[in-house]
């Protein structure tokens, strides 16, 4: 593994590049984290997925968006537009480091939403596959869910948290929610926004699905999207486990299979 800072010198992003010695054709997978509220939960799962992909001969690159993880910027800043640009920067960095011919993108939750929409201009590199794991289809619904979870958190606390909370500053699940971030999330609607091009797009949902109805509307609209569901819960909206690491095994295996097994012309 090669850890590095990349991107603009005044706002660097942390990237982790995992090369494999013999990848033919030179294939790579860019892993995109969910939003800050859920990124902490999937870190271990992404590490396991990275190992699985490496074992299958794929280079892997993962990174922290601006204002998240070890990247520059305070918590609460960024937003979907900026993070989508971060995905573009990460893809370019990945291509420069690995000299890959074919790239797949995998993202969970908001990461999946951005993977679905982000346009990549990578000259000689083909974007073969975009895999969306429990993607957020509607940003306004997602914000409503975050708000409900935050209310639950306050209601369940043994300490009167109202004394601590700043009524002027919104936050959700331990992270500040600045207007720029919330407005960018509110604008998200995969049912109306154009999806980016890829030879293959797959939606993978855990069971029970966080937003099954909207997923099916998306699938009805885009008949070419592949759909798979895995009988393993992720509990994205279960208050009791929100701070605990997500350790799915079947989902990670399925993502690994979907990304590495041939389907179509390229992979």
């Amino acid at each position: 593994m090669h850890a590095l800072y990349f991107g603009p010198s005044d706002a660097p992003l942390l990237g982790l590049y995992h090369p494999v010695a013999h990848a033919r054709p030179r294939r790579g997978v860019l892993l995109c984290y969910p939003g800050p509220e859920e990124a902490m939960r999937v870190h271990w799962a992404y590490r396991n997925l990275t190992q699985l992909l490496l074992n299958s001969g794929f280079h892997v690159f993962r990174f922290d968006y601006y204002g998240t993880g070890d990247s520059s910027g305070p918590s609460g800043e960024g937003g979907l537009h900026r993070w989508s640009r971060d995905i573009q920067l990460a893809a370019q960095e990945f291509c420069a480091l690995a000299a890959i011919d074919v790239m797949s993108l995998v993202g969970a939750r908001l990461g999946g939403s951005m993977v679905a929409t982000v346009q990549l201009d990578l000259s000689d590199v083909k974007v073969a596959h975009r895999l969306l794991w429990d993607p957020v289809i509607n940003g306004a619904d997602y914000l409503t869910q975050l708000e409900a979870l935050q209310h639950q958190r306050i209601a369940n606390s043994r300490y009167p948290l109202e004394r601590l909370l700043d009524p002027q500053a919104a936050e959700a699940l331990g992270y500040p929610l600045r207007p720029l971030v919330t407005s960018s999330i509110r604008q998200l609607d995969l049912l109306t926004q154009p999806l980016a091009t890829a030879q293959r797009i797959t939606v993978l949902t855990s069971t029970p699905s966080a937003n099954g109805g909207l997923i099916h509307q998306l699938l009805n609209k885009y008949r070419s999207i592949e759909y798979t569901t895995v009988d393993e819960p992720c509990h994205w909206s279960t208050q009791e486990v929100l701070e605990q690491a997500l350790l799915p095994t079947q989902i990670i295996r399925r993502i690994g299979d979907l990304v590495t097994q041939p389907s179509g012309d390229v992979l």
Partner: peptide, 14 residues
């Protein structure tokens, strides 16, 4: 700190 929980789950706690 009776107003702070173990994972510092509110920004003010952090």
């Amino acid at each position: 700190y009776p107003q702070v929980d173990h994972t510092l789950s509110i920004v003010a706690m952090q």
